[in-house]
Simulated scan of single mutants.
Amino acid sequence: MTTSTPTSATATPVSLLGLGPMGRALATAFLDAGHPLTVWNRTPGRTGTLSRRGAAVADGVEEAVRGGRVIVACLRDYAAVRAVLDPPPGDWTGRVLVNLGSGEPAQARSLARWADGHGIRYLDGAILSPTPAIGTPSAAVLYSGKAEVYEVVRNVVAAIGGTGGYVGADPGRAVAHEVALLDLFATSVNGLAHAFALAGAEGIAPGELAPYAAGIGGLLTEMAPRWAEQLAAGRFPGERSTVASAATALSHLVGTAAGHGLDLGALASAKRAADRLVTAGHGDDGLARLATVQHADGAEQGRQA
């Protein structure tokens, strides 16, 4: 565990809405940390061992709200949270709503406005780790919303473990981190799948390619902080590699993939971005400049804040 068990003076009653795999992991973490726990799930029968460990099982959302001072929602998406809590069940005086579901930054901001309009203190969160990490030092969770609300629940959400942190007053900021990182993961997974498909089309067995593919992850680890510095400064030195060389490599890659009838969506998008920069006179710049031309209309963004 990352925190000591709260004393009776510091333990806070928590109510958890949603008992999917992540919800059950959160419930276990709160119980392990010594917080009195009430749980509710739309579909009965998912409490498992939670009730035997002392969790109270609420028959309805209003009963669940009554059971906690910190109400944690871990539902499918923001629409599900609204469906469960609108209109707000019970008395929310002295209570805080912490949403740990998934969605879009704009949806987080909308839910925060709804909560504010009903006098509900609200904090949005984004869980960046799989269920086995919850309650351990390896868990990563981000929170955004009013700073004073985060301070109210800080000791409670510490039970989730790891490197959780407050990232700002904008309620959508935590989930904005999440979707940006999901963007990286999803496109990387798709790239790996596409690479295996291309290799297979060229007669290369998966086991032959795998050792070389594994090394790509290390390149990204080095590139991320270096790109961040360059984007913040608005300077893109091309000593290591250039946009022009990337455009040429992408031409070869697109041609090979097209020859095998493979999908060109992601590759064609990458090539368009590189070609735009070359046409605009930035061919000698480093690859980090590619982050500035990702809008659908191809317009180049200014210096990144």
Rank of each mutant, 00 (worst) to 15 (best):
Q107A: 14
G101N: 04
L277Y: 08
A169R: 14
L181W: 15
P132S: 06
I120N: 01
A147D: 05
V14W: 04
N155G: 14
R226M: 10
F185N: 07
Y212D: 03
R289D: 00
G302E: 04
T163S: 14
G67H: 06
V153Y: 03
N99V: 10
P6H: 11
G191Y: 07
Y150V: 06
Q230H: 08
Q301L: 15
G283W: 01
A193K: 05
M1S: 14
Q230G: 02
G68H: 04
Y122T: 04
G286K: 01
A180L: 14
P87V: 07
N41A: 06
Q301V: 10
P130T: 08
A199K: 03
R173H: 14
I160V: 15
G261S: 11
I120C: 07
A247D: 13
N155R: 15
W114C: 08
L100V: 07
D32C: 04
P237Q: 08
L290E: 00
Y150L: 06
A112E: 00
A224W: 13
V72Q: 05
S8R: 14
E62V: 13
V65I: 14
G60W: 01
A176H: 09
V61K: 02
L267A: 11
A270F: 01
P130W: 11
A193T: 12
S241P: 03
G200R: 13
R69I: 03
A27K: 03
V14K: 03
P237L: 10
G48A: 08
G200F: 10
E104C: 02
A244W: 06
P44F: 04
N190Q: 14
G45E: 02
G207K: 11
D275I: 04
V65T: 04
D59Q: 13
Y143S: 06
R121N: 05
A25R: 00
L19C: 03
Q230F: 07
A273F: 09
L219S: 12
I127N: 03
E62G: 07
L142S: 07
A288C: 09
A232G: 15
D183T: 12
H260R: 12
G161Q: 00
